[in-house]
Amino acid sequence: MTVTFSYRSRQTWADPWDDYRALRDEDPVHEVGDGQFWVLSRFDDVFAAARDTATYSSANGLTTAPDDMAGFDEKARPIVMMDPPDHTAMRRLVSRPMTPRQVAPVEDLVREFVTDKLDAVADAGEADIVEALFKPLPSFLVAHYLGVPTEDRVLFDRWTERIVQATAESAAQDGPNQQAFLELFEYAGGLIERRKADPGDDLVSGLVQQGEDVASAMWIVGFIFTMITGGNDTVTGMLSGSAVLLDRHRDQRRLLIDDPTAIPNAVEELLRLTSPVQNLARTVTRDVTLHGTTIPAGKKVLLLFASANRDEREFGPTAGQLDVKRRIERIVALGYGAHHCLGASVARLQCRVALEELLGRFPDYSVDESTARFAAGWSTRRYEYLPLTTN
């Protein structure tokens, strides 16, 4: 049987799971386009690749395009497109505020934001829960960590929405989206200058204080864009996908309502099944032979995180089913190894608090999947419209 693979869009994100299973079972090292790129779909292969940055390099970009880094200013290279030791050094500058211990004090801010948004949903009795909560929450947290002043949040949210959309659709040249890039670029430069004169307790201030030799203004601007694109649609995808899964599996939802202490473990299971970042590419630095197939050095390899996270070889015969009590030793939903998601603890916090409040307030909520709509995109699977009724 010939297995086909294509990038997903809003029309086909709805159910990629059978295709992923076919790849795992029949063609675990799948060649696309006569050597254009290869696809890894089994857990062990994806997990090993995520850990081996010397062989699977991020320095040539994260998409399968051969010229992914064309036009990039080396001084503004995003941290996600660096390999150790450069990646290690830059990650050290920005990781401390996002460790589990440092994230804990942010919980009160998150809970206040979530409850405020759910108050409005309660008053209406129904809402597009993506627009009402799941999209604005990560934007709020990103702005908080970057030190965006409260009075600028409305503008920042507008730019964020357009930039996330443009990045997902590879449509940065579109008029309104291009304008958003330009406006945010100008704003970011101004924010850097403000933090030079008046530093605060935020990531931009911390980077500015390192000096231009360590973190140039261009690199800080690039980091701001990375925070926006990496910290928003991923969390929106995780939250919206979780709301759908818990509506489909109301027995599992009841377990969490009866025992909210199980929610942190459920977050890991929901991360596994939603896998909002479905795939990212790497470039192999040497010939790699897996399952009898050799990938030549210099070629792009797409790591199918979402497929790996449903691999029966790792998670057993129930890998495709939701089990909120499942004990998970390892997943690749937020990357692994050197490129483990910088904001993983923040993402988990948002999901946990959102579920605690959503289930506590609306234990009998329902979503209308028949009218729900996925966002377009080549990597991130997220709903852009998800109607929810509080019941």
Rank of each mutant, 00 (worst) to 15 (best):
R92T: 14
T55A: 08
G316F: 13
L388D: 13
P66Y: 02
I163K: 11
Y385V: 08
R162Q: 15
A197F: 08
G222Y: 07
Y383V: 05
R248L: 10
V39H: 03
S370V: 01
A333Q: 08
E31C: 14
D45N: 04
T2N: 08
V267P: 15
M1F: 05
A166S: 15
G292C: 06
S95V: 08
C351K: 01
N232G: 00
Q11F: 13
N391H: 14
D287A: 10
K325I: 06
R91M: 05
A171W: 06
D67K: 01
G237M: 02
D25Q: 15
G292S: 03
N177H: 14
F225T: 03
W219D: 01
G206I: 04
D86H: 10
A59P: 00
I129E: 13
G200D: 09
P16H: 00
A281I: 00
L203M: 15
L141T: 15
T318C: 12
E31N: 15
F374E: 11
D119R: 11
V267F: 09
G35K: 10
V353I: 15
T167M: 12
V367I: 07
A266W: 04
R250I: 05
A338I: 01
G147L: 06
E193P: 04
F362K: 08
S41T: 02
A354S: 15
Y187G: 05
T160Q: 02
E384T: 13
V214N: 04
P317N: 00
R77Y: 03
G360A: 05
L256E: 04
V80D: 01
V367F: 12
L290M: 12
Q179V: 13
T53S: 15
D123S: 12
D116C: 11
D174Y: 12
R373H: 12
L322Q: 07
T371S: 15
